[in-house]
Simulated scan of single mutants.
Amino acid sequence: MNSGVLKTKFKLAVHEANGQKYEDLFVRIMMQCEQDFKPVKPHGNIGDRGNNGWISTSGRYYQCYAPEDLPANTETAIAKLNKDFGTLKSYWDTISPVREFYFVVNDRYQGASPHIYQAVSALKIEHGLTIAEVFLSGQLEEKLFSQKNEVIADVLGALVLESDADNVIYKHLVTQAIQKLELVYWLNTSDNLIAGGIAAKLVDSFAEFTTIVFRTNMPGLKPELEGAIYGLAARIDALVNHFTHSEHSSLFGNRIWSQDRSWKKIQRTPSVYKQMDEASQKWREELFYLHRNLVHALNIFATCVRNSVDPGFFMGQSFVVNDSLGTYNGLQPYELIPDGFIEL
């Protein structure tokens, strides 16, 4: 996952969040990060009694304050702090004694006034609290980004950050895959690979797709899909290199990359001929495995696309290794859906 992009998005969300919006952000993060955290929903004219969220087993309470301009509202912040803590203490202390208290403020990464810290410290002393602290937006960021990537993406995406612009990037890459890999004609491409060749224009198109992928700065909101895209590009790159960077393949008539058998026309000693024949056969065997791995990568990619971008991608069908002549199956046509990668 692109953590830099996600942190930038988080900071933007913090800067835009006032009042209830920041409290919602705080609550969603705490519910993901603290198993026993419970939000408090305001009820009628009694409100939330100064409690925006708590952990009853430890007597830990949180109170949120997110004005548009915290430095200009220090006196208001302290007044709210004292008033709300008094309400909280009188109501909630009988339910679960208040031992820890956090004054959660949206400081927009600017810090809080020393007067606020002094007021919180005074509450700690006056009420004999174990902990009483100011909880800043930077600390909220640290708490979120200490979680697993899926949790981070879920929190940010569920709030405001899975924007149309982000989905445009994913949809663009899916469209490029369909076009550059000519997926509509995959059965024909697979058949040609079984025969040991591939169209030169398709090799160029494959290479264009990998270039597009590795130049794209992905949003980082769909880690499984992004991993599948990168994985697909890597398998394509390996297949392309097998043709374009090997002494056992050649470009024929600028149209077809294929296994090079021209060496057979030159007279050689039996031992040299045997060595070259074995090397050529190994190239053909590796091509089959690279082909097979690419098909498995295509199916992983297709599953991720269906899960997060397009449920109807290729009508739910799997990609296959297509051997219409039965080259590897005793002249009996067959289709293979790989169940894993085979590393060379």
Score class of each variant (00 low, 15 high):
M1I: 14
V5A: 11
T8W: 01
K11Y: 03
K21A: 15
E23Y: 06
L25D: 01
L25P: 04
V27Y: 07
V27E: 02
I29W: 02
M31Y: 08
C33P: 07
C33V: 12
F37M: 00
K41G: 13
G44S: 15
N45G: 08
N45M: 09
D48H: 00
R49C: 10
G50W: 00
G50S: 06
G53P: 03
I55C: 14
S56Y: 04
T57R: 14
Y61S: 08
Q63N: 15
C64Q: 00
Y65F: 15
P67N: 11
L70H: 09
L70K: 09
E75W: 05
I78K: 13
A79G: 14
F85I: 02
E100C: 06
Y102F: 10
Y102Q: 08
F103I: 12
D107H: 04
R108E: 14
G111I: 09
H115E: 15
Q118M: 13
Q118H: 13
A119H: 06
A119I: 06
K124D: 05
G128P: 11
F135I: 01
S137P: 13
G138I: 15
Q147I: 00
V151G: 05
V151P: 00
G157F: 02
L159A: 03
D164P: 06
D166L: 10
V174T: 08
E182Q: 11
Y185Q: 12
N192E: 14
I194T: 15
I194M: 13
I194Y: 02
F206T: 03
E208W: 02
P219K: 07
K222A: 04
P223R: 00
G227N: 12
I229K: 00
R235M: 00
L239P: 07
T244L: 02
H245V: 11
S246Q: 01
S246P: 05
S249L: 07
S250Q: 03
N254P: 01
R255V: 08
I256D: 10
S258E: 11
D260M: 07
S262I: 01
S271C: 05
S271H: 05
Q275K: 12
Q275V: 10
D277A: 08
A279C: 00
W283C: 01
W283N: 06
N293G: 12
N299F: 08
A302W: 00
T303L: 03
V305R: 00
N307H: 14
G312L: 03
Q317Y: 03
S318T: 13
Y328G: 06
Q332V: 15
P333T: 06
Y334N: 13
